[in-house]
Nucleic acid binder design. Structure first.
Lengths: 175, 175, 175, 175
DNA sequence: ACCTAAGCGAGACGGTACGTCAAGTCTTAAG
DNA sequence: CTTAAGACTTGACGTACCGTCTCGCTTAGGT
């Protein structure tokens, strides 16, 4: 029931009730509960699962690879509905161990894998030395975007990806 | 009504109702609503306003100044109750324009000022050149901590501050 | 939800809250509000709507007909729960135009019709002359009972019906 | 604080709160509670105690005496504020034994005395025989007025007194 | 003329009930 | 047999008043 997206956009995540989604979709509430465990899962799958996984970028330079990764992230999280839903969604996920686990395996783990691949190539090229704290880099890059979108409340411009990649890339290389 | 803190710790932010806080405090709900506009404000002031502002660190090196700033941040946000409340609190703040504004003026603005002061000294010492994207740095540093605590769900160890400061400090200097 | 009756008896009308009724009935408050507009309607239907309408009495004498009508009224209003609820109920009905209208159409109008029927027969029998002020008679008879039960606070004995019927019947005949 | 009367008129008895009365009178709530036990007593004294007791009528005829008594009653209870407050006031009095007692001694007892005096004179004049059920007459007369004003919700015209007196007077005489 | 005490306005306080809303489960009817 | 529709229990919401209480301020009276 991707008409969930409309409601999130119109009234926000908090005011989006499952009853309202069901009514707008012309569907019984049970039909929704049969497929999703609750609002968090429904909205998460509605807004963040449509992304088909792009291949790990391989541009030949660390900074450009990071930029490409960040641009994909930014595109996903700055869509109007996604930005509107992010904070509430995060709260619901944080409050529920099952959903927590899901975030870890479905979002964090793949993201880390992709970062690892990018850094492995950078090491082979001599742009970085082994022992890169990938977790830290992930915290930094993803955190910056979440912070900007979710807490500062601003939609970051496209230059954010480049700047972030530059600072972090150089910070790592210079280590 | 700092006994709010107990409830947040025991049952979490979402399950902390104003009625329950009032009951535990032996107080009428009105008495709470008279002082705070709702759960978000109450918990925010309970958990995050007790911090007396430490002076801006001035250790003589950019990396160490940043480390000091980050350690203060980490200490505040990794207290058990604070970590438990963070995601839900962020969601409520994001959903309410009044609270949004408050975050901006009471948290973001002072944090940026402190960063600006640190970088001004670094520029004078020749550790950095003028034109530092302070907003970006703030996104990165604070975002990393929020991301780690709120989304990854782990309490970062004390080394996180040092590592973060090192990467970002070097990333900026190398620009 | 006729377990409303228990509460009215035990604690009185004023202290009977919809929440308490719901709790005792093992029911949500919404379920009550879905069927009744509030306490007044709930109690009214609980206590005064169970009466199946008896046929208009036709004993062959005006006084006896009136006595029969009054006995029915008395029986209804002197039930312990009914007497306990009457004053509060009247106040709530008087304060709400919708309920006022309901009283008029569901209680006053039928009562008047029955009185009119009784007097028509009395006129045919020559016990009364046309032009009987039926409204006045209704005020007098019903008023006497309401006054006694609701204001004086006494449960009238069964002789009240006979005496009232006698005085009013003679007062009308003698006109 | 006779500005209570204004509020009763404007918003009705139920919506008249002691806080509102205090605010409008420019007075603290305690000052009101110091003098009256609650809303019922306050409104009662405000609206029904200003009447100085008229002498028992003595016109020489039972019907005219009754008419005079009724006219006084009617005048008191059909004042707009009085009519608006009556049902709620009755409910509060009925729910409180102390106030019940007060009604009995301050209203019912004097009313009965006056009726008794009227009937004693009527008996001396030969208009009635001893053994008049004065309680019943009081129920009937007062009840008719309370019923009309409080339940039917109409302000009775001035002819009601005459008609009532006629019917009851004749009903008693004919006994 | 000053100082103390009482009385007052203002309104905070602990409670209780209100009527509304959403959650998640369960029942009914129709297709 | 699955579905929509929506009733159901539960429990939190934020508001309104209750009747009690504590504050200062005012104002009189007594010294």
């Amino acid at each position: 029931m991707t008409a969930t997206a409309e409601l999130v956009l119109e009234v926000g995540y908090a005011a989006t009730s499952i009853g309202a989604v069901a009514a707008r979709a012309g569907v019984g509430k049970d039909t929704i509960y049969r497929r999703w465990s609750g609002k968090a899962e429904l909205v998460y799958e509605t807004l963040f699962t449509q992304t088909e996984t792009a291949p790990v970028p391989d541009t030949g330079s660390l900074a450009e690879d990071l930029t490409a990764l960040l641009e994909a992230l930014l595109e996903e999280f700055t869509a109007p509905a996604a930005a509107a839903a992010l904070p509430g969604l995060l709260a619901d996920f944080a409050a529920n161990p099952d959903l927590q686990a899901r975030i870890r395996t479905q979002f964090l783990a793949p993201a880390k894998e992709r970062l690892v691949a990018v850094f492995e190539r950078a090491i082979q090229r001599g742009e970085a030395v082994p022992g890169v704290p990938v977790d830290l880099v992930l915290d930094t890059l993803a955190g910056a975007i979440f912070f900007h979108v979710g807490l500062v409340g601003e939609r970051p411009g496209p230059e954010l990806a480049t700047q972030l990649a530059a600072v972090i890339g150089q910070g790592i290389e210079a280590r």
